[in-house]
Write a protein that binds this DNA or RNA. Structure first.
Lengths: 194, 194
DNA sequence: GACTCGATAGGACATTTGTCCTAAAAGTTG
DNA sequence: CAACTTTTAGGACAAATGTCCTATCGAGTC
């Protein structure tokens, strides 16, 4: 098999495992078993475990960036784009209940480990943050666009955390409804306390 | 030294380390070094590592329960009590920026590890949830007390997550202000979308 | 002072993990 | 087919970790 293919297969498997089990608890042996290659073969594709982490983060960034860009290029209104962002929580409902937010939980773990790749995880946050700021600015809220973006980011993170803690309750759906109502209010010119 | 003293010293050190580094990344050797006892001596006080985790969770529950009860017993109004809860974020500002929320990050990690003690971590959430429900009920919001409690819990979690991701920005203060404003609105009878 | 028992120290042990090395297999090119 | 490169398998190795065992220390008691 081509090296690039194998590499991508490894990254995909590592992405899934790191999401489900966390980075520190995902070993080379685990990934190798899922991919179906020998443990020793890893070091042909990745020199260190951190390299796999970097590749996984890059993969997540590219994946999310594409999703966000698709919404914009589909010609949807800024408000509709932000609503789509909020509804990500519903799209990934089951996984969030089981494993939490793929971005938040990764950042949290890397921050605790003082891991160098924490900056990459922050890039993931920045990707959404900057995208949201642009959408709010397009809605005519240039002055407080960043505050609005951070607010909705935080609420998404919080909703994901509690949905993870109480997976059997319909909490996520309620919170999404409230966030969409908040978005309506913002679109109607509601102010935000600063 | 008395066994109970040593045990409490160990639990206190483990609590701090587990908060700062995470459970899986805190080894017996780390805790032993901080406490100043030999690694082998651990197994006189705790038979397994999981026992230390249980003790740490119990310690956090007792600690938080005492704090919450103190507010109620001081005769503060329900609204004031909830405001105190919101301001926990400011009290622990620096630690939250550095390590995230002690409850949220612990739960997140244990959930990923499928660790049995995850139920204990959920008890920590429940402690705040039930306490908040009582306060909202005392404010005359019996019907939607749980929804209000979950909402403010989620926002606190989200605020802590983002403060951890952007520790150098004054985000936490802004979010606390918004949450207090929300509390004012709720006290004035504002409805919450369900 | 001798004895008892709770508390501690230090090390042994098996397991896991990240890392590295070497040889074989698979694929490509002449 | 032959020479060469790319890719893979399997194991070796050191370090770290959770666990367990045994000898020793120290305070209280007779």
């Amino acid at each position: 098999m081509k090296a690039l293919e194998t590499r991508q297969t490894i990254v995909a498997a590592a992405d899934k495992l790191i999401y489900e089990r966390g980075f520190e608890f995902t070993s080379f042996a685990d990934i190798a078993q899922v991919v179906g290659i020998s443990r020793g073969n890893f070091y042909y594709h990745f020199k260190t475990k951190d390299e796999i982490l970097d590749a996984v983060i890059e993969r997540r960034i590219l994946d999310r960036a594409k999703m966000l860009d698709d919404w914009v290029e589909a010609g949807q209104s800024p408000k509709h784009c932000i609503a789509n962002f909020i509804r990500i929580l519903l799209m990934n409902n089951q996984k969030i209940r089981a494993y939490g937010c793929p971005i938040g939980t990764l950042f949290s773990e890397l921050a605790k480990l003082n891991h160098p790749a924490v900056s990459g995880a922050r890039d993931l946050y920045d990707l959404f943050r900057i995208w949201l700021v642009r959408r709010f600015a397009e809605m005519g809220r240039s002055e407080d666009a960043d505050a609005l973006a951070m607010h909705i980011l935080a609420r998404s993170q919080g909703a994901a955390s509690l949905a993870n803690a109480y997976p059997q309750e319909p909490f996520l759906e309620q919170e999404v409804k409230q966030m969409l109502a908040w978005l309506d209010a913002v679109a109607d010119g509601a102010t935000i306390e600063t």
